[in-house]
Amino acid sequence: MSHLLLLAGQVVADGLFAVVACIGFALISNASRPVCLVAGLLAGLGHATRFVLLHLGMGIASSSLCAATLVSLCSMLCARRRHTPAEFYAFPALLPMIPGMYAYRTILATMQFLSAAEPAAREALLVEIAYNALTTCCVMGALVIGAIVPLFALHEESPLVRWRRRDAGTDGGKARQD
């Protein structure tokens, strides 16, 4: 029981730090205040989800994919209420999940590789370079694909949405406008 409580605390802390990180990074791109707030909340949700999935033993790329998809779906719910496209909330919310540490380790290992003398050390560093570089690329790709696929699939002009709307009757001017 105490173990579960500790884990819950860690998940909440992870989400809160992601909120702060997201708001600051979104402001670099001069995001407006409502966008910052919503994106921050989404980032907290996404990062906490990824934390839980990683804890359950899922790989970092696949858990990033799931978290990004969740963020994207929630951003579409937020966008429906306001006159703002969903990407404006979803993309800043992905910023705290960008695999910066892996990119840094790639550079570090590359520098060490160039100055390493022994073949054994070089071999180990080469593996580290390949692992970190591949992880960086995969996580980055997973984030973007996870965020974009729901946006494309459930877009206003997509067949999925048109089909559902025809069933539900005319939606008139209430359609999602972005």
């Binding site: 992601a18 702060v20 997201c22 600051g24 990074f25 705290p96």
Partner: peptide
């Protein structure tokens, strides 16, 4: 931005 990056470090 400094606060954000410090929080990012914690992540």
């Amino acid at each position: 931005v400094a606060c954000a990056n410090a929080a990012f470090c914690r992540l």
